[in-house]
């Protein structure tokens, strides 16, 4: 007998992964929680009709991608702080620390690069799957992720060098 798993299993297996994706794209913000909730509600609704051979992770990340876009648009309409990571109080490390600067670097990445990095490295999607979400070729998705990682690495390394110099 082959049948669809109970959706609870899907939440258990992919809940953390999807939250990382939402946080990677939207920042450590309640917007990321909203995107997560909307993703899993949409997922639960569509779950019975998803083809049995579908890649569940890619399916969920694709939904999360759309929900994050909706939320980003709504955020702009509300004229809240600029896109990416919020300016509200940070609970992700001491300001001025490497973590904090990494978030700044993430926020400053062009959208495509940030999305490519997040969907590949946090969502676990192949570049082919990332390309299906972002449009464009697999090679372009690979390049966007690689450029994004390179930019983060420069930030991280330069911060580390600074820390070493001051210590």
């Amino acid at each position: 007998m082959y049948a669809k798993e109970p959706f609870e299993e899907i939440v258990r297996k992919h809940g953390a992964q999807v939250l990382r994706v939402c946080r990677g794209v939207l920042g450590l913000h309640t917007d990321a929680d909203d995107a997560w909730s909307e993703t899993f509600i949409a997922g639960l609704r569509a779950w019975p009709s998803l083809p049995d051979d579908a890649n569940v992770a890619a399916w969920l990340v694709t939904i999360a991608h759309r929900k994050a876009i909706d939320i980003t648009r709504a955020r702009k309409r509300r004229a809240l702080p600029a896109d990416g990571v919020p300016d509200q109080e940070s609970n992700i490390g001491i300001p001025g620390s490497t973590d904090h600067d990494l978030w700044d670097a993430v926020r400053e990445l062009p959208n495509k690069q940030r999305q490519a990095v997040v969907y590949h490295y946090l969502g676990g999607l192949s570049y082919k799957e990332v390309a299906l979400i972002l449009g464009g070729s697999e090679a372009a998705a690979r390049r966007a992720a690689s450029d994004g990682i390179q930019a983060l690495r420069v930030t991280y390394l330069s911060e580390r060098v600074k820390c070493e110099r001051t210590s």
Partner: peptide, 14 residues
Amino acid sequence: DGLGARILYTLTSP
């Protein structure tokens, strides 16, 4: 190469 990604992974982990 994935150093930044690895940190991002940790930072976003719930």
